[in-house]
Structures are given as structure tokens and as C-alpha cells.
Nucleic acid binder design. Structure first.
Lengths: 242, 242
DNA sequence: GTCAACTAGTTCTATATAGAAGTGCATAAC
DNA sequence: GTTATGCACTTCTATATAGAACTAGTTGAC
């Protein structure tokens, strides 16, 4: 097989080492979304483990949301539900209107030198800066500055803009194998500076809501830092606790 | 034993029925925080199940955060970490100051007739309304209106104010056996009306941040609805996703 | 008194096995 | 053609067992 470039700690129990191994193979793109993995029995035979141990590893990956186990059918790679979990804020509060996904427009992409705070959180001094504007029915809603480490996303600034959809995390995953497992948001309130006012079509000093987000990979390292600004009077942020 | 007033569906697998049974006994206060539950072997014998099945039930409760399993020591009821999970917003953003828990002052408690929206979410027409003001070093920070169903919290309005600490969820749990398992927050920005401005010592029309929270019990029913308002310029809300 | 060794009891890991429950496809019946 | 039936295969449930890893208290040596 020899599919593992790095190897789990030998002192870890077998089911955890198997979990890590499968997680790596998922990240390496060995299976496509909705494609069935080998069955419990096959995996047990291949790894010389008992079925119970294999089940324990797969169950954990299923709990973590990477896999989906369908009784009678098989174990499938789940296509990450990015929208539901990581892109659920900023619903426009119209009267009866249901939330629709805003359109996205890339404004700029460039390699920049980060501030010290940014360099610390991303752990590198070479980052790519992305500016993006989200609109809903032609109305500018949200202006985003996004920073990602160049080492993990080589050539991101060269991807044709039309290949980048309204959501970035799928792009991270499909083109760079980087899976966003967790994120931390921080919501605060402020006023529009010159550039934000320009982008959002407001006047300087108007109230804006700001979301600072740090996104983490499964390994725990910070993968992205972004700050999004939008009109405060339209802002609505939902969060589930527990 | 006969400790179960209601009983799980017979069609459910045994490990789930056991999980429900133990969850009920926890809610009924059968064990104190940090007190050890019976061992896997004892539970297996008492319920005429195998140890593996018992372990599966306890593991699930451990995943849900109700229990804590310590190898070699036993299985313990976890004291709910209310502060960390459910009361972590509204940090004052001073320069180097670490966050400290604000003091709380109850302003009023009364049985009121709810609005239609409120009656729908709480599922009753008899609710108790609580007004509360949170301060940090004498500075008013946050004004809260809290609504709870009278049926689940009978006599809450009669509890001496000095018996109610700075956090409500422990009171819900200890005096009424209601455990807040989950909550949904919704953050938005607006302007201060007359009463809010009065409570918070600001002038009418100043920007305020608003957090609407619906809290749910383990059974899934809504247990509390509250709206908290605070100065927008001091506001900072943290949220963890994934 | 102090410290080490032992011990009973606990959870954790791993294996093996049997059958139930569900899926998807091929084949047969009509 | 359409509908059953059967079958191979999958995951799920439940049991049993053996030993490892760990905890907390007791006993014993000094």
C-alpha cells in the first residue's frame, strides 16, 4: 500500500492510527465525494485488524463528519456541507424573504507581507490577500479581506476567477486538499472607514458590523484569517451553542 | 428499581434505551456532580445487558458532555460548564484587561402574558418575565429581558433574589431540574429605545448590540427566550463553529 | 513517619462471533 | 414491461472474553 507519507505515533491505539491513516487518504483525494470506501471486512483484512477495531475508527470519522455510514449500502465520503455550517451568517432581514446565497465577486488577489498579528496566527510571513465583495440582488452586502498562507495554497492567486465559486472552502478542499474543520468567529461593531464605505456604498462613519474569523484545519493549524464588514442595520448573525 | 416514569420506545436498540434511562436519572438528580456512577459491570448486571452495550450507552453520554469517564477511577457526572459554553459573550474590550464575570442585578420578576411569537416558541401562554442588569465595575453593560415558561419553573418569581447568583442556568438546573443543553443566539445591531437607554446610561438612538437567545432542554423543547442589549461600541461576541 | 510494593477495582483496547436490519442488483414469475 | 423474489453484501446490534492501562487505597519494609 504505502500510502502514508507520515505515520501516526506507534503508542497510539490501533483504531486511532487507522483513523489517521484513512483521514490522510481522504485528504489525499483517494476517494471522491459520495464514493464508497472499502467495506469494514475489506479494511479489516487489509490492515490485519478485527472488524470491531475498524468500526471504531470509521465511527469516529463519521462522528467527525468526514464519512457517512449507510446501513446496507456502505461507507461514503461526505461532501462537506460548507454552507450549512460555515456560511450561515449575514442573512438579510427582509420581511418574509428567505435567505438566499449572495453572489460573490473577487476584487483582488495578491501576495502581500502580513502584519505581525496576522503572521503570528497564520505562522508564516508570506500570505495571499483576497478582497471580495458579496452582493444580494445587486446590493453590496459584505466586504471581505481574506488572508491565507502561500505555502499551503501555492498559486491560488493564479486560478481563473471564473473557476472560483461563491464559496471558498470547497476550493480550498478540492484544489489544495485543505479541509476547514473548525472556525472561530468574533463579531464586533464599528464604523466604516474610507475603503469600506466605498465598497459598500455608504458614507464614512456609518455603523458597520465586523466578523473576524480564524479557520483551522483538522490538524489544528490556522489556515485562514478573514475580516468581513457589512452594514450594521442589515446585519444578523446566527450561532448555535452546545 | 422502577426509576423510570416514562419509558423509551421498545423498538429502539438497547444501548439507546439505557442511555435515555441514565439521562433521566441524571436529570432527576440521582447523582451529584463529580459523584461516580455504578461501574460498567454493575450497570450491566443491573440491566441484564452485556458490558459492551453498557459501554456504548455511557460513551454516548460522555460524547454528549453529561458524563466523564476516567480510566481506572470510574464514570462521573460532569458539572455543567455553564460559563465556558453559554456565557462567553460580551467581553469588554479594554486594553490588557482580562475578562471577568459581570455582576448581576435582578430588576423585576413577574408573571406576564406573552406576545404571540413568544408564546409560540415557549409553547405556553403563561410565562415569567425577568429583567436583569449586568454591570462590570459599576458600569452598566447589558440589559436583559428573560422569559421562561411558568409551568416548568413554578414559583421562580418567589425565590429570594439573594439566592440567585450571577448565572441563571445553574439555578434552572439545581432548583427545577431543567438542564440547558443547547442554545441559539442571534446577534444584530440597532438603536437604543427609551428604556434601554435609561438602563444602560446612554442616550436614545445610540447604537446597541442585541443578542436574542433561545435555550433548549435535552428533550429539544424551548426552555427560555431572552434578549440582551448592550452598548455596541463595547460589544464583542465570540463563537466557535464546527 | 516515609516510601515502595501490592491489590482490588475501574475503564480501555482488541478480538471473535452470531444474528438482525437494510440495500441494490439479478433473476424469475406473470 | 412490471412486479416479486431471492441473494450477496453491507452496516448495525449484542454478547463474550482476554488482557492492558490506570487509580486509589492498603499493606509492609525500613
Amino acid at each position: 500500500m504505502a500510502h502514508a507519507s507520515t505515520v501516526s505515533d506507534d503508542r497510539l491505539p490501533a483504531y486511532l492510527r487507522l483513523r489517521d491513516d484513512i483521514a490522510r487518504r481522504i485528504a489525499a483525494g483517494e476517494w471522491q465525494p459520495d464514493e464508497a470506501l472499502p467495506s469494514d471486512n475489506r479494511l479489516a483484512a487489509e490492515h490485519a485488524l478485527s472488524v470491531g477495531t475498524v468500526r471504531k475508527a470509521l465511527q469516529q470519522l463519521s462522528d467527525e463528519g468526514l464519512l457517512e455510514r449507510r446501513q446496507g449500502a456502505g461507507t461514503f465520503l461526505r461532501k462537506p456541507a460548507f454552507d450549512a455550517t460555515l456560511f450561515r451568517f449575514f442573512q438579510v432581514r427582509e420581511h418574509g424573504a428567505e435567505q438566499s446565497i449572495p453572489t460573490s465577486r473577487l476584487i483582488s488577489r495578491a501576495v502581500v507581507t502580513p502584519t505581525k498579528h496576522l503572521a503570528d496566527t497564520l505562522g508564516t510571513t508570506e500570505v495571499i490577500r483576497i478582497e471580495r465583495l458579496r452582493c444580494l440582488s445587486e446590493q453590496p452586502l459584505l466586504f471581505e479581506e481574506i488572508y491565507i498562507p502561500q505555502a499551503r495554497f501555492p498559486g491560488f492567486e493564479l486560478i481563473p476567477a471564473e473557476d472560483i465559486g461563491p464559496l471558498l472552502y470547497p476550493v480550498y478542499f478540492e484544489r489544495f486538499g485543505v479541509f476547514v474543520a473548525r472556525a472561530e468567529d468574533e463579531v464586533s461593531f464599528g464604523t466604516a472607514d474610507r475603503t469600506i464605505a466605498l465598497r459598500l456604498g455608504m458614507t464614512e462613519g456609518d455603523p458597520v458590523a465586523r466578523i473576524e474569523r480564524t479557520a483551522f484545519a483538522m490538524t489544528g493549524e490556522a489556515i485562514e484569517w478573514r475580516v468581513a464588514s457589512g452594514r450594521a442595520d442589515r446585519f444578523r448573525y446566527r450561532s448555535r451553542i452546545g
